[in-house]
Amino acid sequence: MIYDEPRFRPGGDRFLEIEFGDELKLELNFRAQGLGQALTQERIKGVIEIAPFFASALVHYDPDVITFEELKAELLRLINAVASASDVELPSRLIYMPAMYLDPWSAEAIDQYIEKINPAKERDPDFVARINGLEDAAELVRVHSGTEYWVAALGFWPGTPFMMPLDPRCRLFAPKYNPPRTFTYTGTIGMGGGATAIYPVDGPGGYQIFARTPVPIWDMQQRLAPFKEAPYLLRPTDRMKFVPCTREEFDEIHRKCAEGSYEMNVVGYQKISLQSHRAWVATLDLNARF
C-alpha cells in the first residue's frame, strides 16, 4: 500500500522516520529518493542527514535547532513541493556485475548451515525456485539475471546495496533464514523478502544465497577506478545488471580485481524517471517469465 499521507514516526531524540508505504514499489523509493534529492537542493536548518530506504527515509536532526513537530511540517512542505514522484528524474549509473550463479562457495555455506544448524533446510536455489513456482535452479538463474536491479538504498554495513528488480517479470520472493547463517563469503549474492543484496565482506547472514560476484563492492584499498573517491562502489539510484559467468571467468576477474587491473563496466549517462518506467511496464505481459 502507498499511504495517502506519509507517516512521521520518532526514533528517539534525534531521528524521524518517514513511511511512504509498506511495499517494494519503485514509486515508493522514488518518493524517498526524491525527498533526499530535494533536501540536498533546499536545506532544512537542523537536518544533519537523510537516509532513504525502500519505502521510507530516516532523517537525523539536531533537536537544539529544530523540534520534531517543526521538522515534520518542513518535510511535509518539501514532500508536497516535490510534486508527484512520477515527475522526479534521478541520475542512475548502470553497473555490469559478473556473477557466477550456483557457485561452490554459496553451496559450501549452505552445506555448513545444514550440517551444523538446520538439517531440514532445503538448499537455497532449489527452495527459492520451488516457492516462486519455477521449474528448477536453472530457471531461477535465468529469471534472477534477466533484469536490471535498482539500488534502492545502501545500509546495514558500509556500501551494502538493497536492490529491487526493475522488470516486474523477474520479481521473486524469499523468506530469510531463521535462525541466521553464521558464515557467508564476500561477494555472495542473495535474496531476502523481495530484495537482492551482495555481501560486502565475509560474515553472518540471513538471505537465501545462490550466486557470487568476483568484483568487490567494498574495498578499503580502493584498487579499481570506480573506487577512486570512496571505498564503496555503489550509490543509491544506481542500477546493476548481473552477467552470468563461468568458474574460469570468475577466477580470472577475481585475480584482476586483486591486482587492480580489472576494467569495470560502469555506464554513466542515464537518468531514470518513474513515468518512463511505468510506460514500459504497461507494455509487458506480466505473467511471462524468461
Binding site: 534525534r14 509498506d22 530506504f53 519505502a55 530469510k176
Partner: peptide
C-alpha cells in the same frame, strides 16, 4: 517482526 527493509536509528 519483519518489515520492508528500512533505516535503523541509533539506539533502536
Amino acid at each position: 517482526a519483519n518489515i520492508v527493509d528500512h533505516g535503523y536509528p541509533l539506539g533502536a
